[in-house]
């Protein structure tokens, strides 16, 4: 069993990623650490608790940073709906919130399971940076970090910066300094925007996915409207889901297009939050990131349907949607 800790700010796309991990037979989600980002910390924490209840999963939520190290904004606004989960009514148990802080939880868990813990960081990475500041030696014993953020050739919150990293550029910089010791895989906008989940896909999920399919469909509608309005996509980009699927099966990205490179983060000026990735290795600096730049979008979506809804649905997806 792979041991996973989520560091997240749910968020619709976070919810997709978390549910997928919880559905995977070989993955144990040990805990969910929350951070402010898509919404304020109270919202993201309750949303994480709601997901645990929804999936009837055995783990707890660990509340993390309320502010980024370099505070630039409050949250991602209306993209994720008023409550951050598309307004879908969900309940939660108070008992699923631990009294341990996110940073301590991460450090304790890594200490107890050296070189076994994988972190799926799909929000701003403030908690990771704080944990590194507190105990870098322990953090070096993380098995791997899969992080959704950044981009090599594009941004979203600015022309060059992606939201998660822009939200806490300083923390991002500090996280990637760990990349020399711990493999960090960056799932950036270059490939998330090549993996559009179309409305055909979503309607298919609604038709074949039963109750959970209907719920995931209802949840994502604000996204669909936002992506049409701002990007003219007939569908949406579920960034964090791609990060999760890649963590599950790296072959969704062709091996030759995964670059092991040196990455720097801009922490000042108009480029704040931008990831500068030396793909061609002109700087000859130590390599601290794996960046996939191509993705097999059909394989990605098929895997999602297979993990969450089963082989039969995936088969139908191949037959009716992909062909």
């Amino acid at each position: 069993m792979r041991k996973i800790i989520f560091d997240t700010d749910p968020g619709i796309d976070d919810a997709y990623a978390i549910i997928t991990a919880m559905k995977h037979p070989d993955i144990k989600v040990l805990g969910i650490c929350t951070v402010a980002g898509n919404k304020g910390i109270e919202f993201t924490t309750t949303n994480a608790q709601k997901l645990i209840k929804l999936m009837n999963y055995d783990c707890q939520v660990y509340k993390g940073a309320k502010d980024s190290l370099l505070k630039v904004a409050d949250d991602a606004g209306a993209t994720h709906g008023i409550d951050g989960l598309g307004g879908v009514p969900l309940v939660y148990d108070k008992s699923s919130l631990s009294s341990i802080s996110a940073v301590d939880y991460i450090l304790n868990t890594v200490k107890e399971n050296p070189n076994e813990i994988e972190i799926i960081a799909i929000g701003p990475v403030t908690n990771i940076a704080l944990a590194i500041r507190k105990d870098k030696e322990t953090m070096k014993k993380i098995k791997a970090i899969y992080t959704m953020g950044g981009g090599v050739y594009r941004g979203n919150i600015t022309p060059v910066a992606e939201f998660n990293y822009w939200y806490d550029a300083q923390a991002t910089k500090e996280m990637f300094e760990l990349g020399v010791d711990v493999p960090i895989h960056m799932i950036g906008l270059d490939i998330t925007h090549k993996s559009i989940v179309t409305n055909n896909d979503l309607e298919f999920m609604k038709m074949t996915g039963g109750e959970l399919g209907q719920l995931l469909y209802d949840m994502i509608l604000p996204y669909v409207e936002a992506y049409w309005k701002f990007s003219k996509y007939t569908g949406c980009v579920i960034h964090d889901l791609l990060c999760m699927i890649y963590a599950i099966d790296q072959t969704v990205c062709p091996k030759e297009a995964i670059y092991h490179s040196h990455l720097e983060v801009s922490t000042t000026g108009i480029t704040i939050g931008q990831t500068v990735v030396d793909i061609v290795d002109s700087w000859k600096q130590p390599k601290n990131v794996y960046v996939p730049l191509k993705v097999d979008e059909n394989k990605y979506k098929e895997l999602f349907f297979k993990i969450v809804f089963g082989e039969e649905v995936a088969e139908m997806y191949r037959k009716y949607v992909l062909s």
Binding site: T158, E264, T267, G269, I270, T271, V276
Partner: peptide
């Protein structure tokens, strides 16, 4: 961009 790691970048 006029400073930092991205100096000279056209945004």
């Amino acid at each position: 961009e006029t400073s930092g790691i991205c100096i000279g970048e056209s945004v």
